[in-house]
Write a protein that binds this DNA or RNA. Sequence first.
DNA 1: TCTTCCACGTT
DNA 2: GAACGTGGAAG
Length: 517
Amino acid sequence: MEEHPAVEDKQESRTNVPSTATPATIASSPPPFPTTTRPDFTSELVIENKAVSMASADCSSTLSSPAEASPAKPAETSPTIFEGSVESSTATSHIASDSLTCTETNLVNISESLPSSCVSPPTIFGNPDLQNDFPAVLTFNGISVTLENNSVWKQFYSCGTEMILTKQGRRMFPYCRYRLAGLDPERLYSLVLSIVPSDQNRYRWSTSKWEVTGRAEHQGQGLSRAFSHHYSPCRGSEWMSSLVSFYKLKLTNNLQDQEGHIILHSMHRYIPRLHVIPVPEGVVPSSDKPVVMVIGPESITFTFPQTEFMAVTTYQNFRITQLKINHNPFAKGFRDDGNNFRLQRVTVAETDTLPSVVKCPEPSESKEGTRLVLKPIMSTSANKDEPYVPCIRGKHALGELVLVEKQPLVESKKEDHTNRVTPESPQGFTLMPRALSVKPTSLASTPGSKPGYRRRRKRINRHWANSRGRVWSAAAASPMVVHSPSLTVAMQPELDDVEGLLFVSFTSKVKHYKLLL
DNA sequence: TCTTCCACGTT
DNA sequence: GAACGTGGAAG
């Protein structure tokens, strides 16, 4: 259908394909429901415009029943290797069959049956060791589906794919892009993408990994939505003639969404599923007579485990942010431009829990230096049981900053609340011997009409005015006092290979971070 | 944790 | 040039 979304859009004018501007309706048994919000769903499935609402009194209960019967184990135990899965919608489906109360007479089961992970211990989210086990092609009953952008999905999967949810709806990236083969060239098919929970857990991001924090949110009256591809229904020959992309699909956390977006819960794991739904023989689509597509026993569901993702409202894993920026053309503005004074984002993590070093782009060859933006990733409110965690950004932005170079963090130093690391430190810290200047990030874009903003900007600018041009040398053994909500650290060119520790202290508490460049 | 606004990019 | 898609900043 396209290699690029724009190409696909240009093909919208194909004459023999009805546009989904006219709502198509899917139901397990006619007549179809006219709305996606009908409260008393029972075994029906409705497509309205782009969205499919799917629910079943029986099937929806399977959303919670597996875990109730066998509580999900923590993610770090008993890893299950996902295999690409294919399901027919008959009762002979080998996926999650023990959790299903749906039968072949219930035409919704392909949408509400859970992937294998829902009845098995959850996989380790983002396990890089598993990515090569995932097939890019799945075949069932002669129909094969290729995940066309498999390599990108695998890259994201190895880090733990995250997808942003917004109130107005956010596209997926990567999005699901398939190549189909083996369809009946003359027959009409609808292609529908549903996104179902991977497990029954709610997660939180803890410094460098995802942790289970409890049971998943209820999925809401058994209602879930799917997304009918905008060419549906379409002849098999046409589906097979080009790629099929679901780039128009949007994710939202707005439970009252009326735009037909997929409604998900933040901090929950999900996996997309492709449903190939043959349109019954004799059904002729027309603009004034929406096609009723029955999900019958011929329907097949394809699930690629590498497309699993965590729904979030803000990216949690810095590496995912970097992958998005590097791969998504709409995020080009955040890429390094390779020019002078390029911007590098730097993340820091607690040194005692950091599993690996995040590699940033190659250092600039610039003679003018490398500019780094420091942004601690810890917040103060993640866990009430933890001690106060300093954060450069925010209202508590008052503290000290010290860069030390290529020295291990000594264990005893973690309890040091003296707020000082000096060259004479018995632990052997070596302070950066070269010059460093620190200034607040510009607030030029901050709205100026509100008194609070004006006061804040004035205060920060005053601080910067006091220190502007003053080169701060860590060798002076006096930590830089930081008042700004965020910092830009301009370093001399020869420091672009720095690998060291960021030492931040606030009030009487102290926390060590490893600086990752 | 979530929302809104923004600059900057693609289409 | 408009509409739209991005991640970041800030609240």
